[in-house]
Amino acid sequence: MKLRMAVVVALCVGLVCGIAVTQGYAQGGKITVYNPLGTPPPIEMKAMAPRLNTLDGKTIYLVNTGFPNSGPFMQVVGEWFAANYPKTKIEIRSQGMSNMPPALKEEIGKNADAVLFGLGH
């Protein structure tokens, strides 16, 4: 009886070990698996721009990014600047949901002292 049990136990242990090996088990019931994550992009640090010491005489572009109600929102922002910073020039533009048109980018680079995008909903 004891001999039969010992044989059964030995066979079971052997079976489990066999499965463990084929399934990639290491010692101690542990297995090694791949990290599934891809490769993130390298980060290229970019310097922030100096801030403005005053808004008087400056030109701020408000760029409507085309999401629902962004247009009216930027209009109200523009009206607030007109009421509170009358010496600041506000230019409102629309770029739609796609990337900024090159002509608008060139215009901002040439004329703007600051730029505000809106909005992320």
């Binding site: 600051a114 730029v115 505000l116 909005l119």
Partner: peptide
């Protein structure tokens, strides 16, 4: 462009 830029987000 070395100008302050910001975005309105919720």
């Amino acid at each position: 462009f070395k100008i302050p830029a910001s975005a309105f987000l919720i």
